[in-house]
């Protein structure tokens, strides 16, 4: 199994351990990822708010690069960050459906000698693991089952919304299934897809911190030992502001928040450092 891989900006900085753990786990499982050469920012949500045509041009340059580097036929491009994944998938879908938009974006690409034919399939690592690799095979690879560990899965937004290419838009279960495959207990909760507010922890911190407080508090109430997530911004918000939130609301909301491949890696018996666990603010004691 071989895929092109689009890391995006966060996986090279604050979400570094997402990249480290995913690469380690995929390599261990025999899934090959080849990083897209010369990629640029996906545009995230902010670009769309200023200039849509720029945003779609920026994103489609990455789709064009994938076609340049991925050979003929259909190309699978893996994007682990929720915002990158959704930005690429939304751009691809809108270009397919709207001729006017497509013409102007293709023209922009043409002005720098690039073209996009529509051959790229945008994929998320959760989708790859469950649908291409398979949970049965993952189960066989488990060396240290995660017994007596209560896990809540936090998907955030933009991974199954607004375009649902895998799993379910309102009640996604892939991460829960992965946790159970690893021998852990998947705790059901109502906050799976409740938004963390994104950059609001910096811009309107009263609102941003409260959104994350509610998520952390509910995870605690459900007696979770750990939160797993698939998005660098969700992970950052939920983990890095815990001290601030605990002070603000006068109660401890301390709980480890890790990326789902870090949890998989531990069950596979991989080295903690390989999984970037030393980078976490809140060390998962169990792991």
């Amino acid at each position: 199994m071989k895929y092109l891989y689009y890391p995006g900006c966060s996986l090279k900085s604050s979400g570094k351990s997402y990249e480290e753990s995913m690469l380690a786990v995929f390599k261990h499982l025999g899934i090959e990822l080849q990083e897209l050469n010369d990629w640029n920012c996906c545009g995230a949500t902010n670009y769309m708010a200023i200039n849509e045509q720029s945003a779609m041009s920026v994103t489609s340059r990455n789709l064009a690069l994938a076609e340049e580097q991925g050979g003929s036929g259909e190309i699978n491009l893996v994007a682990p960050c929720n915002a990158c994944y959704m930005g690429l998938l939304k751009t691809k879908t809108y270009l397919e459906n709207e001729q006017g938009l497509r013409d102007s974006v293709l023209q922009k690409l043409d002005s720098i000698g690039m073209k996009y034919e529509g051959r790229v399939k945008v994929r998320h690592p959760l989708d790859i693991l469950v649908n291409d690799f398979g949970l049965d095979k993952l189960k066989m690879a488990v060396k240290k089952p995660l017994k007596d560990l209560n896990v809540v899965s936090y998907y955030g937004c933009q991974v199954v919304r607004p375009i649902t290419a895998f799993d379910d838009a309102s009640d996604p279960v892939y991460m829960d299934q992965i946790a159970m495959t690893l021998g852990a207990t998947a705790v059901d909760w109502g906050m799976k897809v409740r938004c963390c507010g994104g950059s609001m922890t910096s811009t309107v911190s009263d609102v941003g911190l409260r959104l994350n407080y509610l998520l952390l508090k509910e995870a605690k109430r459900k007696k979770a030992d750990i939160i797993i997530t698939a998005c660098p911004l969700c992970q950052f918000n939920l983990e890095c502001f815990q001290d601030k939130i605990s002070r603000k609301y006068g109660e401890s909301v301390n709980i480890p928040v890790v990326f789902f491949p870090q949890l998989i890696g531990m069950a596979l018996g991989l080295d903690k450092k390989e999984l970037g666990l030393q980078r976490m603010f809140v060390q998962p004691q169990y792991l």
Binding site: S14, G15, W39, N40, S54, S57, K108, I112, R279, M280
Partner: peptide, 25 residues
């Protein structure tokens, strides 16, 4: 924890990228 990228790897075809954006504005 090494989670701040002070020096980040630069794009190779940055000029192309800038040109494309200039055109779309």
């Amino acid at each position: 924890t090494g989670r701040l990228a002070i020096i980040e790897k630069q794009m190779k075809r940055k000029q192309d990228f800038k040109k494309m954006l200039k055109d779309s504005e």
